[in-house]
Amino acid sequence: MPEPLITDLPMSAGPAGLEVLPRLERALAGQGPVRPHDPSVTPQPLPRHDGELPSDLAVVVGTSGSTGTPKLAMLGAQALAASAAATHDRLGGPGQWLLALPPHHVAGLQVLLRSIHAGTRPVVTDPSLTPFALVQAVAAMDGERRYASLVPAQLGQMVEDPMGLEALSRLDAVLVGGAATPPPVAQRARDAGVRIVLTYGMSETCGGCVYDGRALSGLDVRVSDRGTLELGGPCVAYGYLGEPELTAEYFVTDAGARWFRTDDVGSVDERGKVSVTGRADDLINSGGLKVAPRLVEEAALAHVPAITGAIAVGVPHERWGEGVALLVTTSPGGPPVGSVPEGGVAQIREMLRAHLPAHALPQVVRVTSKLPTLGPGKPDRRAAAQVLG
């Protein structure tokens, strides 16, 4: 049997993105896998892949590159079908989807693939979402059940506007993923009657696979000896295209199931509730004590009124080896762009003292006009560390 030929598939954001639906349908039907990419960027040549490609390979999708060079996860048609079916089952049934994300990233791509699976046509709006554009898009949806997928930054913008909140409340579910959602943003949406579903997943698991701390049907979650999460089940990728060593490092078959070894620190309680603390390589080592940046960020957003966005990283500290530094955005009237003076940092530490251990309190705070991101809303900690330098 001839090896399937992977072809590049430029996928535009906005309504033009719907033009690729027939090609995606053919890929799912076994008529040749595709590599989605941003049409404004010339893609790198596909890596050489020794050995046979999976027979049902449908899509190779780029990872976010949060641990270095982006890789191409090999997703089979069966894995994508299992992911779509489990998602619709969890949400209450198949429905019509709103695409407000870049379609070449896995979260946006999955909106199109779930639509194909459900036999519905998605409504598309530009990723630079505005409340008015959201109102128009939701009004154009005519499905019996209506869903959307957003990143936290988009949700944060919508909850600041009554028009955006009202439009979101008309949907049967709003998946939010790609990065951690600030608790105050999530609570504000829920208080307004928006059914948000906080998701966890990655390209290697066909996107979100844990919803509100509960694994989708068919997925298993366990904790490795090093405290990181491992995800197993039918939605797991075959591995990385042209990367046999990384595939062997991160993917394993156990009792007939494929497992993906993540670098995310987390836990699974006796009831099966999954909690994610952050990436193992993001942990800050302050005086021998580990600090999870995500917990510092959530505390800052919840308890420092002027802070509207935050990225925590480790910076060199003479006594403790590493100290906690915060790169933040602020509301109008808050501290201006630049380093926060020592007195201001002391005030922020006092606001956080009741919510964080002493070793997790920030030593340095700097205000920026925009936080650096990777992909659709994921914090770029390397870039933040360079700014905090």
Rank of each mutant, 00 (worst) to 15 (best):
G309Q: 06
P316L: 05
L72K: 10
A299P: 02
L98G: 10
I6Q: 08
A77D: 03
G287N: 06
P372G: 13
A118L: 02
T368H: 08
A139T: 00
A360L: 12
L75T: 00
G338D: 11
S40I: 01
S40Y: 00
G377I: 10
R195A: 14
A173F: 10
G343I: 02
A180H: 08
R261S: 11
G156S: 13
E318V: 14
D263Y: 04
P244H: 04
G266D: 08
L112Y: 14
G14N: 11
G266L: 01
L229E: 03
A325Y: 08
L112C: 04
I116D: 01
A73V: 09
P33A: 13
R271L: 10
E204Q: 02
V210N: 11
D254A: 15
G32V: 11
G213V: 13
D126Q: 15
Q44R: 09
L295P: 00
W259M: 03
V291F: 07
G375S: 12
G76C: 10
P127F: 02
L28K: 03
L175P: 02
E204D: 03
G314A: 06
G178D: 10
P47E: 00
G92D: 04
R114D: 12
P379M: 04
A292F: 09
C235R: 04
G65M: 13
V124W: 12
S339V: 15
G119S: 06
G164T: 11
E19W: 01
V106P: 00
P357A: 05
A81I: 10
H303E: 09
G14L: 12
A248E: 15
G338E: 05
V345D: 05
L229K: 01
T330M: 03
P36F: 05
T120N: 07
A77L: 06
D212W: 08
D263S: 13
G233T: 07
V291G: 05
R214Q: 14
P182T: 12
M74I: 09
L21T: 15
P244A: 06
A360W: 07
D225G: 11
P332K: 01
V61W: 14
I307V: 13
L24C: 05
L53D: 12
A153E: 09
M351L: 15
M163R: 15
D282L: 10
R170F: 01
V364L: 14
P43V: 05
V59I: 14
S115K: 06
V221L: 12
G193Q: 06
E249W: 07
D8Q: 07
G193K: 05
P379I: 01
L241P: 10
T262Y: 10
A383R: 06
G32F: 10
A306E: 15
E160F: 07
V367A: 07
Y238C: 15
L53G: 05
Q136Y: 02
P4I: 14
C206D: 00
L109M: 08
T330P: 01
S83M: 08
L371S: 08
L175A: 13
V159W: 11
A346W: 02
P10M: 12
P39E: 06
T181H: 01
H105P: 02
V324M: 12
R23V: 13
E52N: 11
Q363H: 15
A384Y: 08
V313N: 08
G218S: 14
T368N: 09
D191Y: 01
I311M: 02
T205V: 12
S64A: 12
V365N: 05
P2S: 11
A153Q: 14
P45L: 03
L327D: 02
C209Y: 06
T42E: 15
S267N: 11
